[in-house]
C-alpha cells in the first residue's frame, strides 16, 4: 500500500500545509479568498507556458500569477469597475485562455483533470525540492513582514502612522500568494488551492482567541487534512485535491461544535 509515489505525495502535502496554514489566515483576515482564486485560475496559463517553453511548472505558474496580480492592481487603479468584477474577469478569462491554448497544443497529452484537481501520481522528487525550499523561503519572508502585515490588517492607518510601511508588506504578500499557488498546484489542483488556504484557517478561527493560536491550529488542520485526504485518495482512488479538501471540510464541521459550546456558555 505504501508506494514511493505515496510517500512523495505525503511529504509534498505536508510541506504545502505548513505554508498554506499561516498564509491562509491572512487570506481570511484580509478577505482575499477571491483574489487567491483568481491567481489560481490563472495558473493554468502558467502550466501551458511551462509545456510550450519547457520551463519548470512551479516557476512559470509563479511568473504568470504574479503578472496577473500586477494587471489586477493596474486595472483597479485605471478603471471604475468594482473589485469583484475585475477578479471574476481575470479569473475566468485567464482560465479560458489557458484552456484554448491547451486545445492548440495537440502534440502534448494533457491530464486536464490532474491540473484542475491535483494528482498525487504526478509528484516527483524535484517537486519535493521545490516545495520544501520554496516553502521555507515563503515562511521566512512571511515572518519578516509579519509585524507590518498583521498591523495593517488590523488597522491600516495605525500601521502607517507608526512607521511600519504597510504598502510594501502588502505587495510582498501578493508575491507570496503567487508563490504558494505555484508550489501547490500539482498536488491540490488549481480549482481547489484556495480551499486549502481558507478552510483550515476558517476551522482554526472557530477554535482560537488569538492570532498566533489561529495560525498554529490552521497549520495543524492543514497537516491533518493532507494525511487524511491522501490516505482516502489512495483507498478510494479519488483525486488528491478533492480528498484533501473534503478532509479539511470535515475538520471545519467538527470545529463548529466548539462554537455551539461557547455560545451555550455565554447564555
Amino acid at each position: 500500500m505504501f508506494d514511493d509515489f505515496f510517500i512523495r505525495a505525503l511529504v509534498a502535502g505536508l510541506g504545502i500545509a505548513l505554508v498554506t496554514g499561516p498564509l491562509g489566515c491572512f487570506v481570511v483576515w484580509r478577505r482575499l479568498s477571491y483574489f487567491g482564486d483568481t491567481l489560481a485560475h490563472s495558473a493554468l496559463l502558467g502550466v501551458t507556458m511551462a509545456y510550450t517553453l519547457e520551463l519548470n511548472i512551479a516557476l512559470s505558474v509563479f511568473i504568470i500569477s504574479s503578472l496577473i496580480a500586477l494587471i489586477l492592481i493596474q486595472l483597479q487603479k485605471k478603471t471604475n469597475l468594482p473589485g469583484d468584477a475585475l477578479l471574476g474577469l481575470l479569473a475566468h478569462s485567464s482560465l479560458a485562455v489557458g484552456l484554448v491554448v491547451i486545445g492548440f497544443l495537440t502534440f502534448i497529452r494533457f491530464d486536464i483533470m490532474g491540473l484542475l484537481f491535483g494528482d498525487i501520481l504526478a509528484v516527483t522528487t524535484d517537486d519535493l525540492l521545490i516545495i520544501w525550499t520554496g516553502g521555507a523561503v515563503i515562511l521566512l519572508v512571511l515572518k519578516l513582514i509579519w509585524k507590518p502585515l498583521f498591523a495593517s490588517t488590523v488597522n491600516y492607518e495605525l500601521a502607517e502612522a507608526e512607521g511600519l510601511n504597510p504598502d510594501r508588506a502588502k505587495a510582498i504578500f501578493t508575491i507570496l500568494m503567487a508563490a504558494v499557488i505555484a508550489i501547490s498546484i500539482k498536488m491540490v489542483g488549481l480549482l481547489l488551492i484556495t480551499g486549502m488556504l481558507i478552510i483550515p484557517a476558517a476551522m482554526a478561527r472557530n477554535i482560537s482567541d488569538s492570532p498566533i493560536k489561529m495560525v498554529i491550529y490552521s497549520i495543524i488542520g492543514g497537516l491533518l487534512s493532507v494525511v487524511l485526504g491522501l490516505f482516502s485518495s489512495l483507498e478510494f482512488n479519488t483525486s488528491s485535491g478533492p480528498s484533501i479538501i473534503v478532509a479539511a471540510l470535515i475538520l471545519f464541521i467538527l470545529s463548529l461544535l466548539n462554537i455551539k459550546q461557547s455560545i451555550k456558555l455565554k447564555n
Binding site: 483576515w29 490588517t153 488590523v154 488597522n155 492607518e157 495605525l158 478561527r205 482560537s208 482567541d209 488569538s210 492570532p211 493560536k213 489561529m214
Partner: peptide
C-alpha cells in the same frame, strides 16, 4: 478606528 472584529485578537 475600524477594526475588523472577526480577527481573533485579545
Amino acid at each position: 478606528i475600524s477594526i475588523d472584529w472577526t480577527l481573533p485578537i485579545r
